[in-house]
């Protein structure tokens, strides 16, 4: 440092005196960020490791015992997929995978739709109307603490073994938490907005339709996304216990034959479906509620 400073002013370039190198400091780990390409590669690596690990282990097991059923080869799984997805069933003539998917999604969609409706109506009432809050908040909180699977037998007794009980399980399992989530979001709408709307002449009903409901909908979508996981759990559980079709039913059916070549593709398919739902809801939210996602950005 001193060498550089004491260099005569005539030597404008100052190249003669070697500058001391700045000490190379490694950045802290939290400040080292991957580039765009690296993000993709890093994200793919765990998937490759899982698939690769499975293939190696599967090959080793089958080398030892060609009849091994626990870790079937990709070819075996491919054959199962062709048989379940593209070959009509000998007995019913259905394409089993699609029939199962349709049955499961009908139950899941029905449960989600009913639960979302309940959550919206009760959530707005609890979050917005003091009397409704006093009446309903404690009972919703209590119901949300009941382990849903523990009342599945009650549902089977009341609703029989048909579709109603399975849809009811999903609704009872997710509606209370969704309701509480929507109610909380509604209660957090600033009081200033509500007072302002009152001074603009809004009635209670108009407050609900013009101020509360539009601002509750994005939170309803978020609550639905968070409820997707539990909803699948309750769906598969109900189907495993009592059903004649459905993705969960099929998995538990073929479990008796140790048919891992069927179970693994089914699990992968369920995962893809769940991911697609979540993605669809996320895209819907971003499109439909632009105001909620536009903070600080120009149009």
């Amino acid at each position: 440092m001193t060498a550089t400073l004491s260099g005569s002013p005539g030597k404008a370039g100052g190249d003669a005196v070697p500058r001391p190198k700045p000490p190379r400091r490694r950045l802290r780990l939290i400040n080292r960020k991957p580039g765009r390409g690296a993000v993709v590669i890093l994200g793919v690596i765990p998937f490759l490791l899982i698939v690769g690990g499975y293939l190696v282990a599967s090959a080793l097991r089958r080398a030892e015992n060609p009849q091994d059923k626990l870790m079937p080869s990709l070819e075996a799984m491919g054959r199962a997929i062709v048989q379940y997805a593209f070959t009509p069933d000998v007995r019913s003539g259905d394409l089993i995978l699609w029939a199962d998917t349709a049955a499961s999604l009908t139950r899941l969609g029905g449960g989600l739709a009913i639960a979302a409706t309940i959550a919206l109506v009760l959530g707005i009432a609890i979050g917005f109307l003091p009397h409704a809050r006093a009446t309903l908040a404690p009972v919703v909180a209590a119901i949300s603490l009941i382990p849903p699977l523990s009342i599945l037998p009650i549902l089977f007794i009341i609703f029989g073994l048909g579709e109603t009980a399975k849809v009811a399980l999903i609704v009872i399992g997710i509606a209370p938490i969704m309701t509480r989530s929507v109610a909380r979001a509604v209660a957090e709408i600033p009081q200033e907005q509500i007072v302002k709307a009152e001074t603009l002449g809004a009635s209670t009903w108009q407050l609900v339709t013009r101020v509360i409901l539009p601002q509750a909908l994005p939170h309803l979508v978020t609550a639905t996304r968070l409820a997707l996981g539990p909803a699948w759990i309750f769906l598969i559980s109900a189907e495993a216990i009592q059903a004649t079709s459905g993705l969960g039913y099929q998995i538990f059916l073929v479990r008796r034959y140790l048919a891992m070549d069927v179970i693994l593709p089914y699990v992968a398919w369920i995962t893809i479906l769940a991911y697609s739902f979540d993605l669809a809801l996320r895209v819907l939210s971003a499109r439909a509620f632009r105001w909620a996602n536009s903070a600080g950005r120009g149009l």
């Binding site: 600033p190 200033e192 907005q193 007072v195 302002k196 709307a197 009152e198 001074t199 603009l200 002449g201 101020v211 539009p214 601002q215 509620f289 105001w291 909620a292």
Partner: peptide
């Protein structure tokens, strides 16, 4: 609150949606 008295708060006075 009624329309005969208008109000402007420091924040949250307009509707974000």
């Amino acid at each position: 609150p009624t329309p005969d008295r208008g109000i402007v708060f420091q924040r949250y006075s307009v509707f974000p949606h």
